[in-house]
Design a protein around this nucleic acid. Sequence first.
DNA 1: ATGAAAGCGCTAACAA
DNA 2: TTGTTAGCGCTTTCAT
Lengths: 354, 354
Amino acid sequence: VTTIYDVAKAAGVTAATVSYVLSGKRPVSKATRERVMRYVQELGYRPNQIARSLIKQRTKTIGLVVPNIGNPFYAEMAEAAERITYAAGFRIFVTNTYRDEHLAQNLLDDLLSRRVDGIIVASEISSLAEETIQSLNATSTITLPLVLCLWEGNEPSFAPAVRFDFCTAGRQAAEHLLNLGHRRIGIVVDAISSDGVTLETIRHFARLAGFQQALIQRGYPLDQSLLGIGSSSLESGKKAAYRLLQLPVPPTAIFATNDLMALGVMSAAWELGIHVPHQLSIVGFDDIGLVAYSTPPLTTVIMRSSTVMEQALDLLFRMIEGKQVASPPILQPTLVVRGSTAPPDAKHSHSVDY
Amino acid sequence: VTTIYDVAKAAGVTAATVSYVLSGKRPVSKATRERVMRYVQELGYRPNQIARSLIKQRTKTIGLVVPNIGNPFYAEMAEAAERITYAAGFRIFVTNTYRDEHLAQNLLDDLLSRRVDGIIVASEISSLAEETIQSLNATSTITLPLVLCLWEGNEPSFAPAVRFDFCTAGRQAAEHLLNLGHRRIGIVVDAISSDGVTLETIRHFARLAGFQQALIQRGYPLDQSLLGIGSSSLESGKKAAYRLLQLPVPPTAIFATNDLMALGVMSAAWELGIHVPHQLSIVGFDDIGLVAYSTPPLTTVIMRSSTVMEQALDLLFRMIEGKQVASPPILQPTLVVRGSTAPPDAKHSHSVDY
DNA sequence: ATGAAAGCGCTAACAA
DNA sequence: TTGTTAGCGCTTTCAT
């Protein structure tokens, strides 16, 4: 492979001159510049970013840690990250934790070893423990720019975060359903395991909390048998819905805490011959691109991945420049009503009165 | 940040010794090893992969070039790539070309600059011209390991390829529909522009060719008005379907050359009140994870992203090791029949006789 | 079993 | 306007 020395020798100058021609960081005579450029072309010289990174202590690389890029929501985030940083010459390492704490730790270590300029962690709490993240900067004096996205816990103290008002989101979902007249409303929420359903194992607990608050406020507290547990996948949502829909008195509406699970619920309803939205209303969460095209189109709570990523990168770049940053205002949800929700149909509903 | 020298000094040895302790490439006395390891821990030393890459001429990084990771098929490929290479310590740069030749060129240049150990290009022909790719190795003596995936054109001469029998796939889709009794079958195919529909502008032309062959063979050649043009997106499939379904004599079945467009077709049918599969059968292509959960579940042609990626990486790693490789046998499609296809329903069909 | 030293390809003071 | 030189942090051959 051609190095800067090959070009320098060919052009009869030193490596420094070639470097300066390429960077423009000091004036070079037109003649030399043209001669150098000619050989750059001719020899097909491509600056070695690795060498450049070593000396500059900058890699123009950032790490993006997500649970699973197979989930379209995270794919959209990754896509946005790429697109937004492209102009600035950055490249992204996308890593999947598969919600495995140990794997996440290794991934993070590797990213540090590769000297990424910064890291964006988009992950629910418990899918990446606070300690894991804090350990990053434990021993180093200089802390690596790090921003958290969509953290479900309390405001983290160790890094700025792009927060989203999950609680209000859950509330909006519930209120929409309540306003339509639903009284028996189920939920499929993401949790670590479906057995011990303690509060700590629930990953989307803020969504659940908001949802429950709204129900309680209106006097229809969540029937515990209507609490379904999933793991963010389509299949898990479907499975949870199967149980709920086969209950003696099934719900007339279900809120799934992400769109993939909502799609799973829709699939279960379809298989069971339950009409959506007439016999069952479904509300999702995320608004991934495809759910506007499902049949029927999904009513869901919008959390724009591109907005989240824009803010995250904005914070990260500022940190990379050495500036002090604070978490921006918490992002608010917007409910988009599409075709998967409707008033409960007395004619079809299993639940006549209670 | 801690360097190898910091550790060496603390442990009272030289950098070389620390290096050997870490790599195990030469025996180190137990005492020194333990002392070194203690300081590695204590100082939180993380080897600088950049420096290591520079000297080793290996970055443990590979580039994956796809049209758009927003398409779940490519997201699945990226996920597979990550997962498969993780154990070997590789990290992936995923880049989106958005089917822009110029952008692709820049991306490829950047990957080369970053000295990736190899590149996998997953892209239809015309979304990345042969010349662009060939230019990669034009000037260098040593050629960068490169493998092509899902190339739609002729067997490429300049790089090994993981090929897929798109033609048979198109044929299978058509035959399935024909066997069900459909005679008026439409297709939504990906092309560069919907205006000048010449053969060269069709990106999924092998799928179209196989499809047409089957129709001709059975004596029902494709009615040109039933050829819809899309651009692989949901919206494009929907738009194309709208036209087809509002034709005076609409098709009773549509084959979309990717799942996203098929979902778009399904959405169009739903909006137009056309029942799937009774009034319209739909066949997709790819079998992305979600289409098994659409309502109804989509009949589609399986092209397993993980298999493609496994083969691609297998080739790539062999090339990285300096071995000579040949393209593996072409991958065969499998049609999976789900709920979106059924015999044409005379009762509901618009097309009674012709 | 360990150390010394060269060098991967580049950039950026410092000289001239 | 251009050249010289000293590293960035690591690995590895050659000594000891």
